[in-house]
Amino acid sequence: MVDDKKKDNTASGLAIEEGNHVGGYAISESFGILIRHYRMKVKDLSLKQLEEMSQVSSSYINRLERGEKTSPSLPVVFSLAESLEIPYSVLMATIFQKTDDKEQGQPSISDVLIQSNFALNDQALSKEARSILITINEFLVNCQWDAGSKVKELYMLSEMLDEFKSAI
């Protein structure tokens, strides 16, 4: 079973230590969130079930998900990706983030929606649906949401959601 106590620094078991930067990249905080999302929401697996599938200890998976461990070895990453049926490219993109990005600030949700290709319920979103989703996001960020505007803003949001649902 692969565990955090076994850190092999050979080419096949490269471990990236916390706080280290490899080639201008650092471990992203999103890695644990992604693993937990796929385990619980997509695959509906317990920690023990994922342990049995991946041969990665449930305690180590739990610490990865909570962000207590941020240095998974590549065999752990590949085993989890295979067990959860996450494309390696998605998992690797989530693990590594450019250190330059931290210095420049985090991208806005609108930037991410514009720059990323993604699916909703295994269906690619059309250009129109993505545009509406960006509009909804910007509306949510900019709405006042106080006692005097709540009803009007809820109505406007419901209209945008109707438009979004008809576009997908």
Rank of each mutant, 00 (worst) to 15 (best):
W145H: 08
G13I: 07
Q104N: 13
K127F: 04
K150H: 15
K69Q: 00
S166L: 14
E52L: 07
V151S: 14
V141R: 12
G32P: 05
F139W: 00
A147D: 12
N9H: 13
V22G: 00
K41R: 10
H37S: 11
S59Y: 06
S73L: 06
K165S: 10
Y25G: 04
L47P: 02
A147E: 15
G105V: 01
A129Q: 09
S28N: 15
S89T: 11
L161F: 12
K127N: 06
V77I: 15
K165M: 12
L34D: 00
G13S: 11
T94K: 03
A81S: 14
K165R: 12
F31E: 03
T99L: 15
F96A: 11
L80D: 03
M53H: 08
R66H: 04
S83D: 13
L120Y: 14
H37G: 01
Q97Y: 10
R66T: 14
S79P: 10
K69S: 08
S79C: 03
D8P: 01
T94A: 02
E65A: 09
D146Q: 06
K152L: 07
A93M: 07
G105C: 06
L84Y: 05
N142Y: 01
I16V: 13
G67S: 05
P107H: 08
E17C: 03
G13F: 03
T94N: 06
F96Y: 12
M40V: 14
A93P: 01
E52S: 05
I95A: 03
L64F: 00
S108M: 13
K43S: 09
S110T: 15
K102R: 13
Q55P: 02
S131E: 14
I114W: 09
W145M: 05
L84W: 05
L91A: 10
T10K: 04
E128A: 14
Y155K: 08
D122W: 05
S54E: 05
Y25Q: 12
E18C: 06
N117Y: 08
I86R: 00
K7Y: 08
K165G: 02
K48R: 10
L120D: 04
P87C: 04
Q115T: 06
D44R: 04
I95P: 01
C143W: 05
S57G: 09
A11S: 14
K150M: 12
V42Y: 02
L45W: 04
K41G: 08
D146A: 06
L74W: 05
S12F: 13
L14H: 02
E17V: 00
V2M: 13
S12K: 12
P75F: 10
D101Q: 15
N137S: 14
K98Q: 15
S110Q: 04
S126C: 09
V22D: 00
I136V: 03
S59H: 13
V42K: 13
F31N: 03
S131I: 01
I35D: 07
E153D: 10
I109L: 15
A129W: 09
Y60M: 04
G24P: 06
T135V: 10
A119C: 08
N137Y: 02
A26M: 15
R63I: 07
Y38C: 11
I132S: 03
G148K: 15
I16T: 07
S58I: 02
L120K: 08
L157S: 04
F164G: 02
E128D: 14
E82V: 01
M53P: 03
L47M: 14
G23H: 09
L45T: 07
I27N: 06
S83E: 12
Y25L: 15
M53W: 03
E138C: 08
E29S: 08
E159F: 02
I136Q: 01
G105R: 01
K48L: 14
G19Q: 08
